[in-house]
């Protein structure tokens, strides 16, 4: 009976863990699509994810081995021997407080650059600071975009020649772009799963979000904040064009928007 626990913790449990670990790369670690990020900052975010995963794996294996050792040695001791209680042992407490502390501190410092790059205006890539392409308005249950007319910059107040679109966000690929995120009603969250971009939209706030689509293509945009009964259907697509095509597309959108329907 005693050995049973030992077998469980040192044999079955780690084996199961290893099998699952061996399977996950095939499952792209649970990431959508091919498992690779479609945005540049997403690559850094994925890197952080893997670093944490490695740390967790090492800690997991370490603790499992330690526990197995304890169970093994304890099971071979005579039953009448008095147990040793470690509770309150200063040295041990120090060890298992300081080690995780160091790990957390390392993580905190290690991710600062990525975090700042995504959140802090001063650390944005230069292009993201100037390339403000659209205002994204979340509302129950759709995404409404407002673009400046070709050649103009996005103003905070809607302009007479602005262009509008629903559930489609067009961006140039291969360059950082910024959107201004707003919500017209409740909280929503702007989530590009394949780009690893996620930002809440908060009523009353205009929040800049930047990202760079590495390749031209279509990427899903979904709401990641339960916003009401229609939350599940609040999806849109981000369409990244090659830069030259993007200009042409914006021009055609402008023409379409100001169509007077006159047929000679």
């Amino acid at each position: 009976m005693k050995r049973l626990w030992w077998i469980f913790f040192l044999m079955i449990w780690p084996v199961l863990a290893l099998v699952v670990c061996a399977m996950t790369p095939g499952l792209k670690w649970g990431f959508p699509g091919d498992g690779l990020s479609d945005s540049t900052i997403g690559v850094e975010i994925d890197h952080l994810f893997y670093v944490i995963l490695i740390i967790c794996t090492v800690v997991f294996i370490g603790t499992q081995v330690a526990m197995g050792y304890v169970l093994w040695t304890a099971s071979s001791r005579p039953a009448d021997r008095r147990a040793w209680y470690s509770h309150g042992n200063h040295k041990l407490e120090m060890i298992w407080t300081v080690i995780p502390g160091i790990i957390l501190l390392f993580l905190a410092l290690y991710q600062t650059r990525t975090w700042a790059e995504f959140r802090m205006n001063s650390a944005y890539p230069e292009a993201a600071k100037t390339n403000i392409i659209a205002e994204v308005n979340a509302r129950q249950f759709e995404w409404r975009m407002r673009y400046p007319a070709p050649g103009k910059t996005l103003e905070r107040k809607p302009q007479i020649d602005d262009m509008y679109q629903v559930n489609e966000l067009h961006v140039p690929a291969g360059t950082p772009v910024t959107i201004q995120l707003r919500t017209q009603d409740v909280q929503h969250s702007f989530f590009l799963p394949t780009m690893r971009i996620k930002q809440d939209a908060v009523p009353g706030m205009i929040i800049p979000v930047w990202f760079e689509a590495k390749e031209p293509g279509e990427y899903p945009l979904v709401c990641a904040e339960l916003c009401g009964w229609g939350h599940y259907k609040m999806g849109a697509i981000v369409i990244a064009h090659p830069p030259a095509e993007y200009e042409a597309y914006m021009k055609s959108l402008h023409e379409e928007q100001f169509e007077d329907g006159y047929i000679e």
Binding site: V166, N167, G230, M234
Partner: peptide, 14 residues
């Protein structure tokens, strides 16, 4: 496809 902005009718573009 376009929905009706200003009302509850959302877009079913996708």
């Amino acid at each position: 496809v376009e929905g009706i902005p200003g009302t509850y009718m959302p877009s079913f573009k996708l």
